[in-house]
Design a protein around this nucleic acid. Structure first.
Lengths: 257, 257
DNA sequence: TATCATTTGTTCGTATGTATC
DNA sequence: CGATACATACGAACAAATGAT
């Protein structure tokens, strides 16, 4: 039993007791927690207190609550989708990215935007420069995991290429296209974790208290000038990114603004 | 004013109204929200409803609440610490990692553990294999951002080297040491986003609703056998990781289990 | 230093709505 | 349809942190 005693707020003690019961194995992953009524009886507290405790465990990502059914222990070591963040090129000059097998949920949405403070820095442009944006909502058929991919193409890059007419070209084809245009490509990726916005949570179908992992890939030309920017946003709980590193000489290290 | 009307729960309408007021600029970043009493008057709802709305904005990471003071709008584009996840080597064979300038908060803590399911896979070992663990709590002096670095060294790797006596050697020196032992090193990094455990939140001094970015770096020898594992956990809100990518031939792509 | 007003935190009670089975 | 379970909403009281008097 999870007795309640000293420290701090009542609901925190209840939350700790339930947390212990979960880690102890009394409530294994996937199993339902006792109902609110049962928890009230078990710990001798009021309904608001129990609900408060449950809310705490919820924002910790420890449990999942389903209206009308009950609260359930979230599987800890969740099945993870591994996205290899690599770029490979065959003899014919075709590029392949190791991002896994994604299926588009909707048609790519093309729109015209301007650089923001964040995207401007990554593209080496001032704020307010014109660019194409292509949004792709993707899903992994085997796991159902969703991801949002956005390609940002400055007008300066698109000009005089097929991109001006078809900005919704696959990134891999864009790489080939830019290479054919004489560029020697390399890439920089910046990844971070954050909580999703309400609409992101909806489109990515994220559970409560699930962060997203967000990565921005800048494609650079021979002289490290940014050509295009790709952003990928996915569930931090279900997706992980892998990178290969090799030791380079110190003269090749590029400072990033 | 943020009028309240149709859709869904009352507290969600209040939350949406406040969210709008924030994005509109009525409450700019850093500014205090009206007090609960004022919000009750403004929207004509009860205290529990207002508090529920505030709780929602809180788990979204939009606001920060300080006991006895008030609720404050969180700065959106937060000052970010950029960690370059690269490895460079000079002529003398010394390694440098571009992880920024960290200062230890405490002495490195050395302990003996065994592989878990997660770390076992990354080290190519079964569960329960013996290894050294070295924990370092680091802080960035300029921003105050904290990070937790853990080095895991299997006994098989440490055996017969200086690591058996001094597992708390700097990772960069470990690289040099392994190179001198005849290994040709490369690295694989796996990064993901997740919510911190309660004690992680405390040691990393994280605010509410801030996820962590977690990266595991495996050091590999000539034949892609794992030698050591480094884990880095940092605030997803304040730290971001950058990687350099270059196109490789398809035969060099390494499948990851 | 001590006190007080303000503000958020905690806890109870109660009633009703809504989803699931 | 009914039983169960979670969601929403109101009211009330006291505790604890903060900042100023």
């Amino acid at each position: 039993m999870g007795e309640i005693q000293r420290p701090g707020a009542l609901y925190k003690q209840v939350a700790a007791a339930i947390r212990d019961a979960i880690t102890t194995g009394e409530f294994p992953p996937g199993a339902p927690l006792p109902s609110e009524t049962q928890l009230i009886a078990r710990y001798g507290v009021s309904r608001p207190t129990v609900r408060n405790a449950i809310a705490a465990l919820r924002t910790e990502g420890l449990i999942e609550v389903i209206h009308g059914k009950g609260s359930f222990v979230r599987s800890a070591g969740n099945p993870v989708l591994t996205l290899e963040r690599t770029v490979t090129r065959d003899e014919a000059g075709n590029f392949t990215t190791g991002q896994g097998i994604w299926k588009p949920v909707e048609e790519p949405a093309i729109h015209r935007t301007t650089t923001t403070a964040a995207t401007g820095v990554l593209l080496g442009l001032d704020e307010g420069e014109a660019l194409f944006g292509v949004d792709r909502l993707l899903t992994d058929p085997t796991t159902g995991t969703r991801a949002l991919h956005r390609t940002l193409i400055p007008f300066a890059t698109a000009e005089g290429t097929a991109l001006a007419e078809h900005p919704d070209t696959d990134p891999e084809r864009i790489y080939a296209l830019l290479t054919k245009a004489g560029h020697d490509l390399s890439w920089t990726e910046t990844t971070r974790a954050r909580m999703p916005l309400p609409d992101e949570r909806a489109t990515l179908q994220l559970a409560d208290a699930v962060p997203v992992i967000h990565t921005a890939r800048t494609t650079l030309d021979n002289e490290d000038r940014p050509l295009i920017l790709e952003e990928l946003t996915a569930s931090g709980d279900r997706a992980q990114l892998t990178y290969r590193l090799t030791a380079t000489g110190p003269e090749q290290a590029q400072p990033t603004a």
